[in-house]
Amino acid sequence: MEYFLQQLINGLTLGAVYGLIAIGYTMVYGIIGMINFAHGEIYMIGSFIALICFSILGLSGVASVPLAILVVLLVTVLFTAAYGWAVERLAYRPLRGSFRLAPLISAIGMSIFLQNYVQLLQGARVKAMAPMVTGGFVVTERAGFQVTLSYMQIIIMALTLILMAGFSQLISRTALGRAQRACEQDQKMAALSGIDVDRTVSLTFLLGAGLAAVAGVMTTLHYGVIDFFIGFLVGLKAFTAAVLGGIGSLPGAMLGGILIGLVEAFWAAYFAAEYKDVAAFSILVLVLVFRPTGLLGQPEVEKV
């Protein structure tokens, strides 16, 4: 039971991270109908920028941990969002109106490019960081097995909740959110009623990359080890989460992320840890085959 509880906590933390990244996939898919294959790489770049910022702050002797985390979050989000914007501008915008698979192929190219870009600039070896936030609560304890909820896990979950709440407000209340929903329904009509479609799409990429950057900061703090290849698997699983929740739906992305995180944690704990990635991919296949709209998605009608 205690073991189960501990895995539940670990799975929820992991799921929160997947959910944050999945929102980027789901928003972009909703608005321009493409799988942004390079989104996992944006998350990886976010982790690198976060680690660089932490190291710079560490060298300049900033002692206050909350202040450091806040500064790094802001800087990382800004710089990573610039990458998200640039990727859209260079690799996707010229392809709008091209044949259906062109943006996906371009995105795969972008993903390979970004991986090797970071590998060349920062080296192929693993980078690591000493944990900054240590300690936590002991939830229960029995027979020498402690169930702990670390402060870092609390920060991740709280931050995810705050961002989710902020995002649903953004989508439902602000002018930008209205513009996004309008573009999602009909780009031509949205353009006719005065919405700058290009700007809306760019902002969507900025926001998605920003959330991936938050996920990057959090995983760098929590797990402390990054390399240039982490974006590939995490990106695939986050995409699985977006599909599982119903692509195009924000709460769905979060729900899907948490489910994938839980499945992964429990699979690794109770079955074979080396097959946990196979479990995640199997979910992707099963969902796509049996319920392509996902848990909270709306059916898509293909028109001639």
């Binding site: 770049i45 920028i49 680690l51 190291s55 920062q122 070896r125 980078k127 690591a128």
Partner: peptide
């Protein structure tokens, strides 16, 4: 400049240690 500033300008040391 924005894209290059951190990733070009700073090289992380391999492994831990935080050397730049």
């Amino acid at each position: 400049l924005v894209l290059a500033l951190l990733l070009f300008g700073v090289r992380l040391s391999d492994g831990g240690g935080g050397g730049l």
